[in-house]
Amino acid sequence: MAHDHDHEHDHDGGHPAAPMVAEVTDFEILEIAVRELAIEKGLFTVDEHRKFTEWAESIGPASGSRLVAKAWTDPAFKARVLADATKASLEVGIDWSQPTGFGTPSDYTEFRVLEDTPTLHHVIVCTLCSCYPRPMLGHSPYWYRSPNYRRRIVRWPRQVLAEFGLILPPEIEIRVEDSNQKCRFMVLPLRPAGTEGWTEQQLAEIVTRDCMIGVALPRADRKADDVRPVHAALRPVPHEEAGR
């Protein structure tokens, strides 16, 4: 990679680089070695392995967003979700008895949805490890698994939420749900103002992952596929100029 010398633009390939671990550990080597041996012996193929990694790295919170949007628009569905979320999940295509299976699945899980009200806000955590409603929300964000979040959200929830930009008045009860056993939780946030008459599809687009963890609130003007950072090249490739 070419190094430029523009110290004000660290993000575009200049130095210093983002922190990384340069050391190759014995474990990294062992992981590769055992995978290659297994493939050579025909226990599985490269393609099968790729299929699993591609899938694992791409599953997202779309099912959870659909569940929330459907609950906002269909009171009977919402009642079914609150009565038996494990069963109601089938209606958005998630079967908890056939978990994603990825990594170390639990033998038995019960899914529960926590309904926010104007006076009650939920936020989920797993202080003992990193339990997360994975079939519904995909992989957890790295901060959810970090000791910083796991330790502090139970002790100083308002401070941690404020660090996410979510400041709630003291009149609203903040309820931290520490999922330490076999229940998995997800937050059903309040439907925001300005979404009257929206379709389920439109609503699903504003229910982002963080809204279902409880560290953010859905807003009519913020979608999951909103603007992404775009950085203009400092020295554009010449053929772009030529093409104009």
Partner: peptide, 9 residues
């Protein structure tokens, strides 16, 4: 904060 709660299993 008086109202805040925590739940666990």
């Amino acid at each position: 904060f008086d109202k805040d709660t925590l739940q666990t299993e």
